[in-house]
Amino acid sequence: MTDKYASYVAIRAVVVFDQAKKHVMYKHVVHYALAIARRQHGCIALNEVITDADEPLYRNRLLDVVARDALFLSNDPWGNFVVQHVLSMYDLRCKHNVAVSLRGHCVDLSFKKYGSYIVERLLEAEVSMGVVVVELLKCDGDRLMRLARSEFGNFVVLKALKVTQEMNRVYLFRDLVQKLMPFRHLLLRSHGSNIANILETRCLN
């Protein structure tokens, strides 16, 4: 599963084996999922298996492993791709579980390239969006300003503003705007210029 070429054989085996052999394969994959996820070719193979798994029981077990160790994997150079993948599958139970695992760490992750992708995925669903926005609102104002001005974090803050509007979470949108408003002038000439534009629109309204 972690070899550049042998992984193709393993992925194919999961598809063509009979049920008895598939179950043996799935058990091994579940057992070694974290080790597989943290390897360059392993993370690709694991994503393939999760996508193609035709056994709901084992698929859910794999999703549970990823969700349970989401923080560990999110900070791994290869494991983060597995977290991103499961969040793109629109499995609401899994999204909720990942959000619970990452609660209290969303701001830290948002400063990082791949971490910000994960947090943006969480913002896309109602079951996980609240966890991220509440954490943004709880963090220190200066830290939120730095996040909004940062290369990757600005996309998270911008998305938080947009989804709270689109999902009609008026109170969350209002609170986020109020917390960011004192820093509007600092956002203008930075990565946070698009955030400043939204704040400017609010002022005009």
Rank of each mutant, 00 (worst) to 15 (best):
F111L: 08
Y58N: 03
L57G: 00
W78C: 14
N80I: 05
H23S: 13
I198T: 12
Y117D: 05
S128D: 06
L34Y: 06
D76F: 08
V100W: 06
L123R: 02
R61D: 13
S128T: 09
D3G: 04
G153T: 02
C43F: 04
N75Y: 09
K159D: 00
K22C: 04
N197A: 15
M167K: 14
V9C: 10
I11N: 09
V9Y: 09
H105R: 04
V127D: 06
A148S: 15
M145Q: 14
F152V: 06
R93N: 13
K27C: 10
Y32C: 11
D18L: 02
K95M: 14
L34R: 02
Y114H: 11
N154L: 02
S150N: 08
H191K: 12
Q19R: 13
D142S: 15
A160N: 01
L92G: 08
M1K: 10
N60S: 11
T164E: 02
R202Q: 14
R174M: 10
Y58A: 07
Q19Y: 07
Y90P: 03
E166R: 13
N75T: 12
E48I: 08
H23L: 13
V66S: 02
S110G: 09
V119H: 04
V132P: 07
D175W: 07
T164G: 01
L186H: 14
S7D: 06
L137W: 09
V131C: 09
V107A: 01
R12S: 12
V127I: 15
A67L: 01
K113N: 13
E135Q: 08
M181H: 10
R121K: 15
L158F: 12
V98M: 03
V83L: 02
D91S: 08
D69S: 11
K113R: 15
Q19S: 14
L123T: 01
C94A: 15
L158E: 13
L186F: 11
Y5M: 13
V9R: 10
V177N: 02
H31T: 11
I44F: 07
I36V: 10
V134G: 00
M167V: 06
S116P: 01
C139N: 02
N80W: 01
L34S: 08
T201I: 13
L204V: 13
L46H: 04
E48Q: 15
G115P: 05
Q40N: 14
Y32V: 00
L136P: 01
K162Q: 11
A125I: 06
K22G: 08
S101G: 07
G42L: 03
L186E: 10
M129F: 11
L63K: 05
S110E: 00
R149M: 14
E126W: 09
A125M: 09
D91P: 05
M145L: 14
I11V: 15
L199E: 03
A37D: 10
I118H: 04
L186I: 00
V15Y: 11
V14Y: 03
P56F: 07
A196Q: 05
M167N: 12
P182Y: 03
Y90N: 15
D76P: 09
V163A: 04
V24E: 12
M181C: 08
R59Y: 09
D54E: 10
E151A: 06
H96I: 00
